[in-house]
Amino acid sequence: MQMQRVDIWIAALLTLAMFSFLYKENPFYRVAEHVFVGVAAGHGVIVAVDSYLRPTVKSVVKDDQYIYIIPLVIGLLIYTRYVKSVAWLSRITIAFLVGIGAGIALTRQIKPFFLDQIAATIKPVWVAGKLGVSLNNIVLITGVVATLIYFFFTTSQKGVLKVTSTYGRWIMMIAFGAAFGNTVMSRISLFLGRAQFLMKDFLGVLH
């Protein structure tokens, strides 16, 4: 119980130190900021080690899956960039990552991000007795086409093409506005979470 109280004090002091930046930059904020960067960087390493490297080494040692030595060695080649004479070997790591990434882009991404999106856009522009649904479908179809036309640079955008691309830009502005609104709301919910922690767990004025 006593230990948990200490933990809450640490969390509360770090939270307040972070919030102090709203007044102006100060030493408390900078301490919290640097602790955050250090712990977050360390956490990234630990997650990678626990999720991938430890199980890989385990499968090599215990299950005789020697084939996983190859990706480990390829991965470690990236650190040759610190030795000038063999620095070019680090490109082999990048080559594998980019090669597999290109393979994924050319195969797995096509269906969910391209074909399925086109299929979902092919909707009836007239649904009998449902004017609202028809109008929504028209806005959706024209919006997708106009957005794509905005990025069509093969010919200069004049006349109908210019009007359509302007409509596409407006549709994108609405999408960016929605994304912005959602981002602000998610940040506000985080802020409320921290305020609730301070009021409830730390100060005990909320029950």
Binding site: V98, G99, A102, G103, A105, L106, Q109, I110, F113, F114, Q117, I118, A120, T121, N136, V139, L140, I141, T142, G143, V144, V145, A146, T147, L148, Y150, F151, G168, I171, M172, M173, I174, A175, F176, G177, A178, A179
Partner: peptide, 29 residues
């Protein structure tokens, strides 16, 4: 706004970005 124009805009961007990724993938290949 979230269901209709937002979906239209994001879908258009997603299709365009995937076309770009495919083109880059072919160039890498």
């Amino acid at each position: 706004l979230l269901d209709v124009p937002n979906t239209a805009g994001m879908r258009g961007i997603m299709i365009g970005a995937t076309l770009g990724a495919i083109a880059t993938g072919i160039r890498i290949l």
